[in-house]
Design a protein around this nucleic acid. Sequence first.
DNA 1: AGATAATATGACTGCATGGTCACATGACCG
DNA 2: CGGTCATGTGACCATGCAGTCATATTATCT
Lengths: 217, 217
Amino acid sequence: MPTDTFFNLPDDKRERFLTVAIDEFADNDYRNASVSRICREAGIAKGSFYQYFADKKALFMYLLDVAVAEKRALLAQIEVPEGMRLFAKLRWLFEMQAQFDFAHPRLAEVGSRALYGELPFRDDVLETLREQATVAYRQMVLEGIAEGSVREDVAVDTAVFMLVSIFNELGNHLQKRLNLTPQTMMTRQLTPEEWAEAGQIFDDLIQLLQNGLGSAE
Amino acid sequence: MPTDTFFNLPDDKRERFLTVAIDEFADNDYRNASVSRICREAGIAKGSFYQYFADKKALFMYLLDVAVAEKRALLAQIEVPEGMRLFAKLRWLFEMQAQFDFAHPRLAEVGSRALYGELPFRDDVLETLREQATVAYRQMVLEGIAEGSVREDVAVDTAVFMLVSIFNELGNHLQKRLNLTPQTMMTRQLTPEEWAEAGQIFDDLIQLLQNGLGSAE
DNA sequence: AGATAATATGACTGCATGGTCACATGACCG
DNA sequence: CGGTCATGTGACCATGCAGTCATATTATCT
């Protein structure tokens, strides 16, 4: 989506630009993110920007590409476990998501804005991305039923809705529970204690999803 | 928050204005909602607007007042049941929320934007409103434990997080499941069949929250 | 060095916004 | 009728935006 000129840029300049752009789209939704501000911040002329990208939308879509690529890179780094049963798989997914959020807090913010925020244009790629989570979760629930780990009489649509809602808010919740801000996450790694706490939250969540809140009474 | 002048307005003019304003803040987040557009749409001069409200923020806060008042009115209409146990109470809450969403779809949209969207200013009243849901749910879970309907070893914080996440997304989910748009909701009542379907979804949700997705295995 | 192509630049256009203000209109009262 | 007060009005200001373009700078090759 960017032009050759953009890729010809010296690495440091290109990276500085990207950092600034990601920050801008992490701090502001699409309409309020400002090309002018990005240019000012990154120290490049407005005209130059339009030599790199056709327009604001092209930059935004490229940032999403970067986010997707980054996520793929993370997944490639860790072998996807085979033969996991539903609740183990869910837990693993939670952990993956958290790992991405912690490794790329600003990018993750851009991504979640893109998925759940409002945009002044319609984009099919994005639309598909949006649906993907629902479809994947439905598939998982169905497999869960097939393998016997999920009750046969479960209300599939409603269960999927639950999973997606929780998944979407998980990042925010972890941040609150661990007292983290995107800044602190950028500047330091998670301590083992923090990871343990996150792990505990995942365990609790899985426990709740699997057995509910109700007592046996 | 509005001036006397605003309340002195002929009823139809004031109501027309409010309808337009609510639509504007339902369709756009705070920053993108436009006073100029509201004035144009409502057929009043820009100067007049500033005779009714100190500024854009004052209008916005007033709309929230209206929303809260409207919700109170709904609750006053229906007697709050006493002595309900947790899961019955939750179901009742779901139904209340849905009834409000269906009765005032546009206002509900303004409200949820206010609670979960971003604002260019900080407001203590709003902050309190935001926390209220979490506090109330925590209280309910604790009561649930006390009365024995909730497992004693439940992870309270995580359970509350689950409940809040689900509750926040419930409106959207119902809309999708029942194939409704704010417009259709404005123009017609829900059919008994649609209400039944909503009720089924509530039942399913409660069932999932209480017993989880897991099979007994 | 000279010529050609790639890149950088920032003033500029056109547009929309929130908010102001000097003035116009209308209502009520003696 | 005249005067006073409440209300209505829209041109106007400062600001910020996305995007353009003529011009200037720098690289590259002969």
